[in-house]
């Protein structure tokens, strides 16, 4: 980045119609960037249903509720499909991975 920085200096000078050899030749007008988002998780797979957390859990897939299938993080920083976890804590209110008491840290949105 250091090189880039030194190179970027000239553009900050006023633009001189491009006729003079020292003027800023190139100006960035428009930039279409692309990013890929994914859940910020330690493990890609939901330990409860064994489906990738980026995909909906099987239940939601078959119910055509892919959109509603969000991810939940516990205080332990482990993450699961929220609907999988809802079922899980009915039996056992502990994180299936670390056995800590399950407390929701945040929901994916």
């Amino acid at each position: 980045m250091a090189d880039g920085q030194s190179l970027e200096e000239p553009p900050k000078v006023k633009k001189a119609k491009g006729k003079t050899p020292t003027g800023p030749l190139f100006t960035l007008k428009k930039w279409n960037a692309v990013a890929m988002w994914s859940w910020d998780v330690e493990c890609d797979t939901c330990a409860i249903c064994r489906v990738q957390v980026m995909d909906a859990c099987l239940r939601c897939q078959s119910d055509k509720k892919q959109e509603e299938c969000i991810v939940v993080w516990g205080e332990c920083n482990h993450s699961f499909h929220n609907c999988c976890m809802q079922l899980w804590i009915k039996q056992n209110n502990r994180c299936p991975l670390c056995q800590q008491e399950w407390t929701v840290q945040r929901f994916g949105s």
Binding site: A35, V41, S79
Partner: peptide, 24 residues
């Protein structure tokens, strides 16, 4: 973005990006 969507992370895909340059 991350403030808007909690729990998400972004990965830039520079190979897919394009831009318009003004040249003299």
């Amino acid at each position: 973005y991350v403030r808007k969507h909690s729990g998400r992370k972004l990965q830039w895909q520079h190979s897919l990006a394009n831009c318009v340059l003004r040249v003299s």
